[in-house]
Simulated assay, not measured.
Amino acid sequence: MPRVLLTGGSGFIAAHVLDTLLERGFDTVVTVRSEEKGQRILEAHPNTPKEKLSYVVVKDVAQEGAFDEAVKSSPPFDYVLHTASPFHHNVQDPVKDFLDPAVKGTTGILKAIKAYAPTVKRVVITSSFAAIVNPKEHAAVYSEKHWNPVTWEEGMESSQTYRASKSAWEFVEKEKPNFDIATVNPPLVLGPVVHYLNSLDAINTSNNRVSDMVRGKCKEGLPPTGTFLWVDVRDIALAHVRAIEVPEAGGQRFFVVAGEFSNKEIADIVRDSFPELADKLPSKDFPSDKPADLYGHDNSKSIRMLGLQYRSLKESIVDTVKSLLAVGV
């Protein structure tokens, strides 16, 4: 079977990508920041033989040459899925916490593959709606054709994934390596947490809003929704794997989006599906902040080329809440 290197193996999206890879028979090596995280992944897959799943430690993806040893493998790698890019709100230093890991990590792994992994045919990179959206002047309907026009200086706080994906396309154009690339561009990512990787303090940024509702932190009212587009993490995971399975996916960006939502809709689903949590939520009459003239989205390319069938918001939220309750929220 083809052999895949999956970076950022202890991340929210990567955990689901890993499960999808294993389900579809790929031999997988994950990069993790510590031996402890690697061991936790192996322990969570006790019936998976070591030739199907192993890990390699990459302590700091922003370091020069961080991935040089990781990409060397016997048997050699056929594909790389690069999900190791940070997205959270506890930013002390935008360059150190965001831009260096995202941009240097992405260009670093591409350089390492070109130098040390000549058998790699394709690299799939986790990008973001941030690489598409223009918050100053919204498109009527967003698709893969759109690029965020933000400059490096303006992007110091929010567009690290835009910078990383832009750097990746520039690398391929300039260096003409032995592989092609594809990017997967999700908006807000919801969906179940993987029990072996997530503590209550390490829930991904998108799921924090669901966790806060379940914990009763939104009883007096809901926070602003922010991005009104969403996707389930399991659909994102499948998109990454389909992007290496489908030959024509090379050289493509994929806007992977299930639809529109608001925090009010999430609260209503939680209330209806988990009546025992109703007293932790604001009243049914709490208004929605979703604008009537919200920009549209076009996900037809991901459906046509990758064969995605998107989960509903209700399924995603119900499964998310179940997973949060299971880890002790």
Score class of each variant (00 low, 15 high):
61 V>K: 00
246 V>C: 10
293 D>H: 08
93 D>R: 13
185 N>E: 14
20 T>H: 04
249 A>P: 05
141 V>A: 02
13 I>M: 00
94 P>R: 01
313 L>T: 12
207 N>K: 04
196 Y>K: 15
227 T>R: 04
203 I>R: 06
192 P>F: 08
272 D>L: 12
223 P>M: 04
202 A>M: 11
202 A>F: 12
279 D>I: 03
314 K>T: 15
161 T>Q: 13
120 V>C: 04
128 S>M: 03
312 S>E: 12
193 V>Y: 02
247 P>C: 14
179 F>E: 02
261 F>V: 15
74 S>A: 14
66 A>M: 07
295 Y>L: 10
134 N>Q: 09
238 L>E: 15
95 V>Y: 00
125 I>N: 10
257 V>F: 02
227 T>G: 09
214 V>E: 10
207 N>H: 04
210 V>I: 15
233 V>W: 06
189 V>A: 14
247 P>E: 15
193 V>F: 05
145 K>A: 15
191 G>H: 14
239 A>N: 08
288 S>E: 04
184 V>L: 11
221 G>W: 12
247 P>T: 13
134 N>H: 05
152 W>R: 07
309 Q>A: 12
329 V>W: 00
313 L>N: 07
307 G>C: 09
70 A>P: 10
272 D>T: 14
314 K>H: 15
17 V>S: 00
135 P>Y: 03
289 D>S: 07
194 V>C: 07
32 V>C: 01
3 R>C: 03
177 P>C: 06
195 H>G: 05
316 S>R: 13
211 S>Q: 15
115 A>K: 12
114 K>F: 02
31 T>H: 01
139 A>W: 09
91 V>I: 15
42 L>W: 03
13 I>P: 13
192 P>N: 14
181 I>R: 03
151 T>G: 07
170 E>G: 02
219 K>W: 07
34 S>D: 02
83 T>M: 11
87 F>R: 01
67 F>V: 06
71 V>T: 12
94 P>T: 04
113 I>D: 01
177 P>M: 11
159 S>F: 12
114 K>Q: 14
81 L>M: 08
47 N>K: 14
109 I>E: 06
199 S>Q: 09
44 A>W: 08
164 A>G: 04
272 D>Q: 14
161 T>W: 02
55 Y>I: 03
125 I>Y: 01
207 N>D: 15
219 K>N: 08
274 F>I: 14
126 T>K: 02
171 F>L: 08
128 S>K: 05
23 E>D: 06
152 W>L: 02
268 D>H: 01
326 A>Y: 00
167 S>G: 13
77 F>S: 02
34 S>E: 02
216 G>A: 13
229 L>D: 04
27 D>G: 02
122 R>H: 12
294 L>F: 05
274 F>W: 10
242 R>I: 07
248 E>K: 14
20 T>M: 05
326 A>T: 06
21 L>M: 03
287 P>Y: 08
51 E>Y: 12
247 P>A: 15
279 D>V: 02
1 M>H: 10
140 A>I: 05
287 P>F: 11
192 P>M: 10
258 A>L: 09
148 N>V: 03
16 H>P: 00
217 K>W: 05
3 R>T: 10
36 E>C: 00
6 L>F: 07
186 P>Y: 10
